[in-house]
Design a protein around this nucleic acid. Structure first.
Lengths: 153, 153
DNA sequence: AGTGGGTCATTAAGATGTTAATGATTCATA
DNA sequence: TATGAATCATTAACATCTTAATGACCCACT
């Protein structure tokens, strides 16, 4: 096809890689009534008893306006809950409920299995070099967020 | 952060790379009243006098249900137009109008410049190896039945 | 104490993604 | 030749993305 140049641009290659990789994960999430973004939140909350809204958005790569809705829907299912900071009433902290942690624990093995399968389908050295390159690109602009940190009040 | 493992997973690394790379391109598109997806369509149509809806969806990586709306909005601005196939009346072909081609020609240099800048910011060998790895991943079509088997058990 | 700038989560509005289903058309085959 | 299966674009319903704006709140400074 004559669109070779466009199809082989870095952005399109990144999109295509995601298109090839994500469906099998989304199939797992959906079986448990979760969306990809909802899973990301639960996945991150697993390692943070309490995380600032802002930091949650950053780690999950879900833009704040979207995250509001994601949290709303997770909260409606009693999987997570909000908590307003006392020291700074603008801030909101998110935490998983017992129900949320239980769901994560149930889904996690399936995700891990799929991920292990993915990882084994790629040569070890190539995998390492790929992640290194992606890290360089991903870090090149994320400097602005570097200053911000998790603050435990 | 304790979420290291998650943040360094392949999908998140891919998403982060896109998050670092795309904003500068989107800024260009928006300046000309285009969205990222609308640009992709115009970009592909530049090299195809006439392309099947199905193929357009595949090359632009825009899922068919979304592409319907993208084409609708481009057609409303008279930038592209639909044409029903005579041999198979289910098929639809898309083509750019003179106005659409003119807009593409005006935007293209800015996009090319930004892309050249991006490309120069990365080592030549690393770039090649990165695209090669992404190509391998993007070419391997995931088998959905595997994910289904894992979950159903 | 009061004011203005900055931060934070949220809302708003439009476009796109995701999954399933629809209606129109074509095809294969009985 | 009829007819059920397959293909194609589209619709539907909901979730998310993108960009800009909002209102509540904090802080430094007057």
């Amino acid at each position: 096809m004559a669109t070779q140049e466009f199809s082989r641009s870095l952005p399109m290659m990144l999109y295509r890689a995601l298109d090839a990789v994500m469906p099998r994960f989304r199939a797992i999430f959906n079986k448990f009534g979760l969306t990809e973004q909802q899973w990301r939140v639960l996945r991150v909350l697993w390692e943070h008893d309490d995380i600032a809204f802002r930091d949650l958005a950053e780690v999950t790569l879900i833009p704040p306006p979207s995250l509001v809705g994601v949290i709303d829907r997770l909260a409606r299912q009693s999987l997570v809950a909000r908590r307003r900071s006392e020291s700074d009433r603008r801030k909101v902290f998110i935490h998983a409920t017992a129900k949320g942690r239980a769901l994560h624990k149930k889904v996690r093995p399936h995700v891990d299995a799929a991920y292990a399968e993915l990882r084994e389908s790629i040569d070890r050295d190539e995998w390492a070099s790929l992640l290194l390159s992606l890290d360089r690109i991903g870090s090149s602009k994320a400097v602005e967020s570097e200053a911000r940190r998790v603050v435990n009040e």
